[in-house]
Nucleic acid binder design. Structure first.
Lengths: 205, 205
DNA sequence: GCGTCGACATCACAACTGTTGTGTTCGTGG
DNA sequence: CCACGAACACAACAGTTGTGATGTCGACGC
């Protein structure tokens, strides 16, 4: 059952939703379409389960990454890591989100589900900003609700465009610049330094 | 020919791209599929022409709106009007953009076209910021290239979510808040005042 | 040992889809 | 008045898709 949604997720990422057929999903997972029609009522059921599972995985991962940050510097670094992932699998997920949004435009019920998990993710971003403000690192004239929403929508737009243009440097620069305008210059600089040090020590080739 | 792309555009906005068939487009435009196969080589040809025409229309409209602004206040107001349109037809166009982006993910050649027209639109945003800076209204520590890109991606993300949630107030508030953080509080306030005055005098019901 | 029930495979089917070949109309230049 | 080609309509085609009916098999309770 979980194998089916995983297979669906991967086929959607590879071929896009429009070109995703139940037969493709079955072939990807190593089973037949009979299994799909046995465990799921519809094709919609399969697709929705795949999308829902993927976004649940993402929020869980993001929560884990943000949770283990001890200092504000680590928190900002984690936020940057989560919003502009370096992992190629995480980057490929942007296609999933894009297809998911478009699909949600046709499925009102599913759109509400999306909105609920998006609210969770926005709340996570907001609590990051709250911790920054509590430490006095943030400009004081900012509406945190709006800023969290802005940051969230900015990340959406950036990831979408990055997936289209295959340029993953620019989004990172944009999020960093945005955080700097909020007053987090030092934290961004620290995250950037940590990133270069880490990638510098990891570069084996 | 133009009627065909217009019909395609409208069907995509109504039903989404995946559910858009050549027969639907023909019925919408009042002709048959024979016309489509006569003027276009492929279905891809029809879709791409519809997308390209729509984005050409948008940039032309945005250019016109921004051009006729005399003062900085009017310029900022025009930018707000273009990025968060009140017109329901313009709002419905967000579905087109969403479908277009997803489609571009499967069509590399078309993706480059998209990126070209997006660069034009980014340049328009950038020149708005430049005029603001030339007048000394902008914070001085800002990288205008990055800020134009940020604003552009923010608008993408906001419009997408607004289309999904049918909430068109929040995007406007976000763009305003963002422009305020750039130092344009007075201009945003002026635009807001003008908007309420205008809508107040126009409200006939 | 036997029935039964869930987990799948297999296969057939009806519905659509994009595409193409073959008319048919009609404006226009000679 | 006549050809002629562009602009379209119409119909048929081949391929695919989601779906559902039917068959197979193994686990498990009695």
């Amino acid at each position: 059952m979980a194998a089916a949604t995983d297979a669906a997720r991967q086929v959607i990422i590879r071929n896009g939703l429009e070109a995703t057929t139940l037969r493709d999903i079955a072939r990807e997972g190593g089973f037949t379409t009979g299994l799909l029609s046995h465990h799921f009522a519809d094709k919609r059921d399969v697709i929705v389960a795949a999308f829902a599972g993927a976004s649940r995985d993402f929020t869980a991962w993001a929560h884990r990454e943000l949770e283990q940050a001890q200092t504000i510097e680590e928190l900002v670094a984690a936020l940057l890591r989560v919003s502009c992932p370096a992992d190629s699998d995480r980057r490929a997920e942007w296609r999933l989100w894009a297809e998911m949004w478009v699909y949600a435009g046709r499925d009102h019920e599913f759109a509400q589900e999306i909105e609920a998990t998006d609210a969770v993710w926005t709340q996570m971003v907001r609590s990051v900003l709250e911790r920054c403000r509590a430490d006095g690192r943030l400009r004081e004239d900012l509406d945190l609700d709006l800023q969290a929403e802005i940051l969230n929508r900015l990340i959406d737009g950036l990831g979408l465009r990055a997936w289209l243009s295959h340029d993953w440097e620019s989004p990172r620069a944009c999020v960093e610049e945005y955080l700097c305008t909020l007053g987090l210059q030092h934290e961004v600089a620290a995250a950037r330094a940590e990133g270069t040090v880490r990638s510098g020590s990891e570069q084996g080739e």
